[in-house]
Amino acid sequence: MTIAAVLWVVAGVIAFAAVLLVLARLIKGPTLIDRLIASDVMLTTLILVVGAEMVISGHTRTIPLMVVLAATAVLGSIAVARFVSRAGADASADPGGDHDRG
């Protein structure tokens, strides 16, 4: 194996360990915010792995996928954050009374 190939394997093992940890947090929670952050990290890791695969395989065909993921990853986070924010305000019934406006 060349030095580069060894480094690819090392990077793959590290990324795999990271994804396992993120998955554990995604399953364990305990709050929706935790799962939201964990899924965000998972998506970031996906973008990184797609890019790493291009380096390893020596092609550039999936760059558009990286662009689209980087541009739209934010939408899910914002939508769920709004939803969670409103649900939390309803559940805790804080004196602010800002449930209706969310």
Binding site: I3, A4, A5, L7, W8, V10, A11, G12, I14, A15, A17, A18, V19, L20, L21, V22, A24, R25, T31, I33, D34, I37, A38, V41, T44, T45, L48, A52, V55, I56
Partner: peptide, 29 residues
């Protein structure tokens, strides 16, 4: 290029460890 990939993977692992070990959502963020 491969060394940069290892660095990026290490950053991801650091984030994952922080995500797992930190006590509350804002720290994990």
């Amino acid at each position: 290029a491969a060394a940069l990939l290892v660095l990026a993977a290490a950053l991801t692992l650091a984030a994952a460890i922080g995500l797992w070990r930190f006590p509350d959502p804002l720290s994990r963020l």
